[in-house]
Nucleic acid binder design. Structure first.
Lengths: 344, 344
DNA sequence: TTGAAAGCGGTACCAT
DNA sequence: ATGGTACCGCTTTCAA
């Protein structure tokens, strides 16, 4: 399997210098005379020497890798997340390990195992147990992405609750809607749980009785159409508005509603969360909340990277990024006037 | 950062045995007396010793990691792909490194860099240059996923061309459609290029003149709606049928067509490829080609894993997995009679 | 400036 | 069955 078996000693022998010198040259550290440097470089070039990552990592006691743990990637949200994370990791010469705990019982162990192969880990909120998170945090720097961890673990998230309150208030107050439902499972995901809380808060604020329970479904398009089927089966109990935990669900619900011959927003209002690329392209375009997913992940990577570089430093503060309410047609608005920050 | 600093020597000293014995116990290799084993286990337990992955990897000259390279993950296709790959890697105690070359100029270098950190790599067809692929292959075992590489590099793919020919023939012959368009870019993706070829072949077969060029767009839902907008802007040049390179595009095109007030399949037929979960759930359900994405990735992982275990062995044969034509309503069929293998 | 040598954390061969 | 020890490939003192 090729020439990857060339080692420092080999090069040292070939160039007639010591391994220390080779190391210095290949790393650009220390002082090396022009003459030596030339000889070494020549040998390196000639034999295609590239320092072995393992040897280097062992000596440096650093893997040069970051971990990213999520439930099971799906949809544009995770796409953005991974790319945002990579956008910071790659320039820092750190590779990215991913782990989908999705549907696996032993995910806590898997994560702990991963901790032995990376310098730091970002965990999507809700993917592993709190004890496991704590254990993990004493092994490597950890940050919770999209959620909140125990006090000691920093996190990066968005202002889900106020954003969802704002959106729900718009439906309740500006559009006078009364029978709203919330689609999504607050149980496993901190994000969704906060959005559900924001949904409830807006109801409380307006004195409208909210539904007792959310419609619990997963976060993908198919789940949205399934939810729509269930919600619109019986016209007498059908809601005025379907507030979805994310755009994927909303897109599915929209397809499902349209497929049953309903008009949106005339017969039913549908809203999302994320502002995924499709949100603006469907008919009617989706009213939603834009969140900076890429930045979120990039911020997480940055936090970890700096914790890795400054071991023993103070735990970084948690970060909450702002969202933006995006009004389009699916909520019943004719145009898009009231845009702007979440506003509190 | 916790007790991860416990080493073999430490444990050996604590248990009053040699490092060799500790190693034997912690690996379950060799013969160890009950007494020794107990003492060692006790010390291990007490100090929470877990062998360091780097030390182990260096000694074994094996990373215990596999790489997965793709253009830029998006949509259900890549979700399935990653999970299929992981489903084989994780049980083999190999972690998964991912690399999205998407929009990066130096992807060839990135991939070569990755090769130094993993034992083998799966590369999605069309993501890196052929020279880079060859270089890569002399560093570690490589398999091309969804595409074909140079003769010496094994690949795993599906029978794209015949499958697409079958689907197109159905439109041409069974439905008598004449003005078909193909949406997708054959350029970067071997999969798409084969599907385009299959599309052309069916036309040739039936003596129908195919469009001179495909409608080149990326592989996601937004691209599909954009394509629809462009295709249906001018009614006089609108196609009878939109054959999409994958379901994502088809879903987008469907949304776009429906959004413009067109009826599907009455006004225009739309077909996909993949049989993603949404395909069966939209209205009308999508006629498409089912491909075993998960199996594809799992097979790739298996191939790499066995190449890693049997270094110097013969290059494994390339594998072509069968697809299944799935007839639903979007092609104009009332029901779903003609199902079955691709048939050749 | 350069080199010898001591690790980094494990594994495994070779004696005993 | 057990222990001593030489690696694995690279970095980094410490002397010269």
């Amino acid at each position: 399997m090729g020439n990857s078996r060339v080692t420092v000693r080999e090069i040292a022998r070939l160039a007639g210098v010591s391994v220390a010198t080779v190391s210095r040259v290949s790393n650009g550290t220390g002082q090396v005379s022009e003459e030596m440097r030339r000889r070494v470089l020549e040998a390196i070039e000639k034999h295609g020497y590239r320092p072995d990552h393992l040897g280097r990592a062992l000596a440096a006691r650093r893997h040069g890798a970051l971990g990213l743990v999520f439930p099971g990637l799906s949809g544009p949200y995770f796409t953005e997340l991974i790319q945002g994370f990579e956008s910071e990791a790659v320039p820092a010469r750190a590779s990215v390990h991913i782990l989908c705990t999705h549907l696996r019982e032993d995910s806590d162990d898997q994560v702990l195992e991963m901790a032995r192969r990376v310098d730091g880990v970002a965990v999507i909120g809700g993917t592993i147990s709190e004890p496991a998170l704590l254990r993990l945090a004493e092994l490597v720097p950890v940050v919770v992405l999209a959620g909140r961890g125990p006090e000691t673990v920093p996190s990066v998230s968005v202002d889900n609750a106020p954003a969802m309150t704002r959106l729900t208030r718009h439906l309740l107050v500006d559009h006078g809607l009364r029978r709203l439902v919330f689609v999504g499972s607050p149980d496993g995901s901190p994000d969704v749980s906060e959005r559900w809380a924001g949904f409830l808060a807006a109801h409380r604020e307006s004195g409208v009785t909210p539904p007792a329970e959310p419609v619990r479904v997963a976060m993908q398009q198919p789940d949205g159409v399934l939810a729509a089927e269930q919600l619109f089966r019986d016209p007498t109990t059908a809601p005025d508005a379907v507030v979805c935990a994310n755009d994927e669900i909303a897109l599915g619900a929209l397809v499902g509603a349209l497929g049953r011959g309903l008009r949106v927003p005339e017969d039913v209002v549908i809203t999302g969360f994320d502002d995924a690329p499709m949100a603006a392209l469907v008919t009617p375009p989706l009213t939603t909340v834009r969140q900076p997913v890429r930045d979120l992940a990039a911020e997480a990577a940055r936090l970890i990277l700096s914790a890795v570089d400054a071991p023993g430093g103070p735990a970084p503060d948690s970060i909450v990024l702002p969202t933006e309410f995006v009004v389009r047609r699916s909520c019943g608005c004719a145009t898009e006037p009231p845009t702007g920050g979440t506003g509190k």
